[in-house]
Design a binder for these strands. Sequence first.
DNA 1: CGTTCACTTGAAAGTGTTCAATTACTGTGG
DNA 2: CCACAGTAATTGAACACTTTCAAGTGAACG
Lengths: 273, 273
Amino acid sequence: MEAGRQRQGRLWSNLKEVCDLLHIYIPTMSSIGDEELLFQHVQFKSGQRIHTIGQPFDTLYIVNSGFLKTLLIDEFGNEQVLSFPMKGDILGVDGIHSKQHASEAVALSDCDLILLPFKKLTALGRTHIEMEHAMYSVMSRELVREQAMVGMLGALSAEARVARFLVSLSDRYSQMGYSSKLFNLRMTRHEIGSYLGLTLETVSRTLSAFNEIGMITVDQRTICIRELDALKTLRRLPPSRSRAKQLAANKLKSAANKAPPPNGESWGQFVTA
Amino acid sequence: MEAGRQRQGRLWSNLKEVCDLLHIYIPTMSSIGDEELLFQHVQFKSGQRIHTIGQPFDTLYIVNSGFLKTLLIDEFGNEQVLSFPMKGDILGVDGIHSKQHASEAVALSDCDLILLPFKKLTALGRTHIEMEHAMYSVMSRELVREQAMVGMLGALSAEARVARFLVSLSDRYSQMGYSSKLFNLRMTRHEIGSYLGLTLETVSRTLSAFNEIGMITVDQRTICIRELDALKTLRRLPPSRSRAKQLAANKLKSAANKAPPPNGESWGQFVTA
DNA sequence: CGTTCACTTGAAAGTGTTCAATTACTGTGG
DNA sequence: CCACAGTAATTGAACACTTTCAAGTGAACG
């Protein structure tokens, strides 16, 4: 919780801290900062809901610390996870259009969020062109992200989805200053499955398979990335006939000469279009 | 091509026409309109590309007439269709963030688009608060749409996806003043499949199945919606064992007493969670 | 210490894909 | 106007991937 200062027994952040979180660089920031605009923080405990579907919208949130999920709920009450926001991510953009939140956000850990009253933001945008453009930019970025998600759901196999999920987590952890190799999942297999359009069993099995291959080590929620490049380029494991052959071959080899069976190289050949 | 007037041998639209297309109502429109801001139209022939991935972004487009597709291209050159924009839809929002288009847009028919230079738009937003809010609103709406798409790809069966696709087309045609029952598909099975995360064969088979059941009539690109409500509520056809039974029963019935086999009612029972 | 929830793993089933063959369109040039 | 080539759509059969169902293990927490 680097950003923020105490005032009235609460944490507040100034505009610069908010922009830094969002990875927005504003050259004339100092002149804006002079006004000492402050944004209030709010804390949520794990499991608490930040907003619900249909709830009136009037403020955006930025994640300062902690982990969350956002979700849609279909007509039968089933959750569809849309994203796993973490530090620097923005929440609530989908509420602008209808002035009601279109999704639900839930804390997966204790969280510290910064409140961005939408009216305050737009007013700011009016006096500072850079801020205005920053807002358009952030919204556009969210859209691009969703499009990438659609592309992934539309085109990739289960294994490729899980692999990309791990890679993106790795990226984000490293951006946040944590290890990109060794980290803990903050969400259940069920939530991952929902996010990726898979069942929790498929997620579990896929992680186990990656583990067996040696691309990762997995134990419950602890993940260790061993072959990042292999994960990045993986599109589809070989069809089961050849995979069966390969597995058999590997078993033979490892049985014969106690050598560690498959490595990143030996799986490169299976990274197919 | 109702909107637009001639000037310098080209079509132009004023702000009111643009807002009407976007379904945005601005109460103080008349005062803005006074300035006689005009936006230029551009025509594209079927097959032409409006913008490519990576191309510098500086203008948004609104579809005034015609049909298009937008798509992503993966590292192997495969298309992933993202949307099928038509009258009133906006194009190019994904380019704002990186100042480069993140997707490609292609005309599926001859099109008439209105150019909205982004700078002109933001300037307008600065002088007219309602316009500014309209822009945020439109971008938020795009995001909500993508989220709905993610939800659909993540949760629905092939049949449900195709059904929803038909329903949404029906909605949009009726909004545009065309028949909501009888229309022509402007895209190939391949493009539909890409959009829905399915193969073209699955799309074709599913349409044939709907046809056989009597929910729609399909002949090549001509679609006639017969049981709109059934399509709307369809989530998943029954598992093949019971479906086989059902089909057999239907065949028996129709063979026995020449009655039209299945109707909307008889399929209601299969609309399951 | 027992209950609960998350996770793993196996076996069977089902949905959707792939491959392949056939038919139907579309547009072009003779 | 027709033939022809090329693209689009349909359909069947075999197969593969993912899910479903089920059982069992493990960790967390009162």
